[in-house]
C-alpha cells in the first residue's frame, strides 16, 4: 500500500522513470500553478484584512480574518443569494431535463405532421444569442406578473438554453434500437410508461450531459438574472450579488473575495465529486 502512494509511483505509474515524463509533468505542474493562481489569490484575500491586502502581496495571510465571511454571508446577503441561486439552478435543471427529454424523444423517434417544421425551427435558433431575446423575455414576464420573482427567473433560465438540449436528445433517441420499445408495447405498456421506464433510462448518458450543462448554465447565468432582479434585489443570484458589490462606492475587496469563495465552493465540490460525470457528460455533447 505504501509503495502505491510513493511520489515516484504517482508520476510514473508502473513504467520506468523517464526524463521526458518528468520534464512534461514538471512543466505542466508549473503551468497549473500559474493557471489556478487567481483562485489561490481569491481564497488568500478572503482571509486577510482590508489593510493587509494592499500591504502584503504574499499568499499566506498574517491573521485569519474569518469575519470577512460573516460580513459577506450576513451583511452582503450572500446567504440569501446563495439559496436563490440554488433554487433557480435546481428548478431549471428539473424543468429543462424533463421537458427537453420528452420533446427530443418524440421528435427523434416518431413521424407525424409538423415534425419537420418543429425540427427545423429548433435547429435554426441554436445560434440566437441571449442579448437578442432579452427584451421580449423581460416584457413577457412583466405581462404575466413574473418579472420580479424567483419562479419567473427559473422559467426564463430554463427556456433560454433548451434548444441545444432538444437537438441533442432528438439525436440520441433516434439511434436507440426499436426492439425494446416494441416488446414493451406488445406487453400493453402505455406510451408514457414506455418513455419513463424504458427509454429514458436508456438515455442516461445524455440526461447526464444535459443536467451538467444546465447546472453550469444556471450557475453562470448573468444577463437574465441581472435584468430580472433590477427591480427586486431580494431575488438576486450569487453572480448578480457579487457584481453589486463592485457597484458600491468603496469596494470591500476582502468581503467580496469571501463572497466569491462562497459562490464557487459548492460547484467546485460538486465538480470534484462528480468529475467523471462532468467529463463524460460534456464529451457526450460533441460525440452526439
Amino acid at each position: 500500500m505504501i509503495a502505491r502512494l510513493s511520489p515516484k509511483r504517482i508520476v510514473f505509474g508502473d513504467h520506468a522513470p523517464s526524463l521526458r515524463i518528468t520534464l512534461t509533468s514538471a512543466i505542466l505542474a508549473l503551468l497549473c500553478l500559474v493557471w489556478i493562481y487567481p483562485f489561490l489569490w481569491m481564497v488568500s484575500t478572503s482571509l486577510k484584512s482590508n489593510m493587509e491586502m494592499f500591504a502584503n502581496p504574499g499568499l499566506i495571510p498574517q491573521d485569519f480574518m474569518w469575519d470577512n465571511y460573516r460580513r459577506a454571508w450576513v451583511e452582503a446577503n450572500m446567504g440569501r443569494y446563495f439559496f436563490n441561486t440554488l433554487i433557480v439552478t435546481a428548478g431549471s435543471v428539473f424543468l429543462v431535463t424533463v421537458s427537453t427529454a420528452m420533446l427530443g424523444y418524440v421528435l427523434g423517434r416518431y413521424r407525424f405532421p409538423g415534425r419537420t417544421t418543429f425540427f427545423v425551427a429548433f435547429v435554426a435558433t441554436v445560434f440566437i444569442p441571449q442579448g437578442f431575446t432579452i427584451i421580449p423575455v423581460f416584457e413577457l414576464l412583466s405581462m404575466m406578473g413574473l418579472s420580479s420573482n424567483l419562479f419567473g427567473l427559473t422559467l426564463a433560465t430554463s427556456g433560454h438554453a433548451m434548444v441545444v438540449f432538444v437537438v441533442l436528445f432528438a439525436g440520441y433517441f433516434s439511434q436507440l434500437p426499436k426492439e425494446l420499445e416494441e416488446a414493451a408495447r406488445v406487453e400493453g405498456i402505455t406510451f408514457f410508461k414506455i418513455f419513463w421506464y424504458v427509454m429514458l433510462p436508456l438515455a442516461r448518458p445524455m440526461v447526464v450531459t444535459v443536467v451538467i450543462m444546465q447546472v453550469l448554465h444556471a450557475w453562470n447565468d448573468f444577463l437574465l438574472p441581472l435584468v430580472i432582479t433590477l427591480a427586486n434585489p431580494a431575488i438576486r443570484t450569487l453572480s448578480v450579488g457579487i457584481y453589486a458589490f463592485k457597484g458600491e462606492q468603496s469596494i470591500d475587496w476582502t468581503g467580496m473575495s469571501a463572497a466569491a469563495t462562497i459562490s464557487i465552493v459548492p460547484v467546485v465540490i460538486l465538480f470534484v465529486l462528480l468529475q467523471r460525470y462532468f467529463i463524460n457528460g460534456l464529451a457526450g455533447a460533441v460525440k452526439g
Binding site: F12, F39, A260, V267, I279
Partner: peptide, 28 residues
C-alpha cells in the same frame, strides 16, 4: 504514460465551473 493527467485536467477545468461574474471581478 502521463499518470497525473487527471489532476492537471481538474486544475485546468476549475475556471469553467466558476461563475463568470466572480472571474470578471477577481481579474479586475
Amino acid at each position: 504514460l502521463l499518470k497525473l493527467s487527471t489532476f492537471f485536467r481538474t486544475m485546468i477545468f476549475l475556471p469553467v465551473v466558476t461563475p463568470v461574474a466572480v472571474i470578471g471581478i477577481v481579474w479586475t
